[in-house]
Each structure stands twice: as C-alpha cells, then as structure tokens.
Amino acid sequence: MLNREELSKIVLELVPEAEIPEGTQYPEAIIPAEKLVELTEKLKSDKRTQFDYLISHTAVDFLTHFTAVYHLDSTEFRHLLVLKVKIEERENPEIDSLTGLFPTCEFFEREVFDLFGIKYKNHPNLKRLFLEDDYGFPLRKDFRDEVNIIER
C-alpha cells in the first residue's frame, strides 16, 4: 500500500503537468483530459500501483466547467486514488472513454452521458440509460423542468 506522497510522486512522474491538491480525504490528481487514458493505462499496468478496479465514475457540474471524477482502487494493494479531469467546454463537452480499460466504466459513462450530457469518445454504445432521448440533462445545475420539478 502506497501512501499519499508516493502516489503523488508516481502520478507526477507519469504526467508531469498533473496538479496535486492538498488536504483531500484521499490522494487526488487533476490531470489534463488528453492524458486520461494514457495515465490510467499506466497506473493499471504499473507494478507499483496496479489500479485495476474502478470503484465509481461520475461528474460534477461547477457551472464554469465539468469535472469528471474517477475513483480507482487496487485489489492488490488496497490504495485509493481519485483522478479528476476538468472539461471547460459546456456546449459540447467531450472526454475519452475508459471502457477499454474498465468494462464497468461503460455503464458509469452512459449514466453520466444521460444525466450530464458529457459525450465519450470511443464509447461502444453511448445511449441514454435512464431517461428519454429528448429529455434535458437533469444533473446540470442550469437544468430547469417547469413540469416535473418544483423549485423551493
């Protein structure tokens, strides 16, 4: 099991432009979108880290940008790493899909696409999961539904 400093060091070694915030609950790294697939692939195969289990993937809408959040776990070492990717584009947000590395991600990504409208490149089957095709993206903070949601 690697501690926070060691994990940060490895991430910085693999992606020098990563940003490591302090004072978070778990080790965390904010990385540029184009490095995401490359970094996770390395983290998964690296003998020191072996992040082979994606606990969850979701996104957060900060109005100015989206943040895609990945919680990675290693079944071997049991250390946990949070990866974050900022998506500045709001009209047509796009990010690489991790389905090839973690099959479970296919459905987390479909959920995020359904609720946030973030598109995933190279996703095998990017369709809405819960809602109808013409519904908005309800988890965006600027989403309004006059009929179904009563504001308080």
């Binding site: 004072g23 978070t24 609950q25 778990y26 606990i55 969850s56 979701t58 957060v60 959040v69 919680h71 949070v82």
Partner: peptide
C-alpha cells in the same frame, strides 16, 4: 467545503457515497 467519499459493505456489495 470539500469532497468526501465513504464506502460500506451492503448485503449486495460495495456502496460508495461521494459528496461534494
């Protein structure tokens, strides 16, 4: 302000709560 993550074991598997 911050982000919090908690995992528990339910009868069916891992439940994780992520609060921003």
């Amino acid at each position: 302000v911050g982000e919090y993550f908690q995992r528990v074991e339910t009868a069916r598997g891992e439940l994780a709560v992520y609060i921003v």
